[in-house]
Design a protein around this nucleic acid. Sequence first.
DNA 1: ATATTGTAGATTGGATACAATTATGCAAAC
DNA 2: GTTTGCATAATTGTATCCAATCTACAATAT
Lengths: 225, 225
Amino acid sequence: MATALKLKAFDLGKQASAGDVIYDALRDAIIRGEIEEGEPLRQDTIAQMFNVSRIPVREAMQRLEAQGLVLSERYKGVVVASLSHDQITEIFQFRALVEPTVIELAVPLMSEESLKAAQHYCDAFAAETDPLRWGDLNRDFHTALYKDSDKKFFLTMIDKTNDLVERYVRLVLYLTQGMRSAIEEHQAILDACKARKPELAAELTRQHIDQAGKALVGYLRDHHR
Amino acid sequence: MATALKLKAFDLGKQASAGDVIYDALRDAIIRGEIEEGEPLRQDTIAQMFNVSRIPVREAMQRLEAQGLVLSERYKGVVVASLSHDQITEIFQFRALVEPTVIELAVPLMSEESLKAAQHYCDAFAAETDPLRWGDLNRDFHTALYKDSDKKFFLTMIDKTNDLVERYVRLVLYLTQGMRSAIEEHQAILDACKARKPELAAELTRQHIDQAGKALVGYLRDHHR
DNA sequence: ATATTGTAGATTGGATACAATTATGCAAAC
DNA sequence: GTTTGCATAATTGTATCCAATCTACAATAT
């Protein structure tokens, strides 16, 4: 038998098509709030931006619509979706139900690496001065806490809710200059995880999301958005 | 002034494109289990079925992939997704968390019409002799109970979970000749709604989903699927 | 001045055609 | 009999072109 020759296997992932790239780029721009609500996305314009035809652009847009990030009307075009205060409230209600469950399941499985990563994002969030980075670090923190739960479907759903409200979260983080209370709440949740107290972590997460949701809608209301 | 001539306004909804029609048809066939797991869906073949080009077919497939109903690989094609027992278990865990919450919110808002509709579907389910109809009636029943909750996002999520597991639910309803225990559980949930007892309806729903999930995975295991 | 109609441009949905990549069948070599 | 190499077919990804429809504005009628 020949010596077992091991070739290094690069994980290229599914080779990305133009449609995939465009989808990612548009999704990113939308959830970051770089495109105004209600702003139309013209197939032609975007196709030229990426130097491709309209076909992959249309496919990307259909996926964005399925994800709820844009609304499309025949012969009129696609516009960036906007959420009413009620819709935002409902999404936070959903998160307040799902995320505590996930963290409760995750705590017993949480690796030291994940805890360290979460602490890193928590500190980085507190230290970050660029408002545009707060959104990412906030999301990274929560993701680090959830991922060891090994509940892929739950995580997919949570990602979806994050995508939908992220532009508003970012806006409010900006308006409130970072929401210092969030930092303390993050640390408290993380401490509960480190102490391996699933129920406590779940309850603190529930309160955190509840607070964040109410604060967010409150600020939006005050600023007439 | 001329007499006010009122033209009847038909609500055509968003005018359906070929892609929409194909998406609906494929989704339906997949969740009903009319296409085998892992079976490839060829763009060309399906385009011919509908007498269209591959463009709208591709768009439909991309949406199916976003919904999690198919898997796509570049230059290889799209295959109907199959779920592992673990994945099915997780989805039922998710439903057992979300659906009780929704019914609890719905009970106080539930109209007499909705209660009547639910009773109708419940009876129809019990009386139905055609196994192929059980899946629909089961879903109609639950939908009737949830819709007055006025929580669109929750309902969308529930719909998604239903889409993903429906083919398995149908299979097991078939194998078990209708699961008589489900009928009693349905009636108990409905009675709790009629009595306007939100917490009871929620708890019964949780138990019902839990049972159904465990029964489903158990049957699948026994039948090596 | 206001309402209606007509027309040109803009925009999307889809068909056809072609390029890139993978799967398949078959002959040759081991 | 099994494996390897290559030519061919099958299949997907994208570009280009056309049809259907909407929008905006000018022209006309009231």
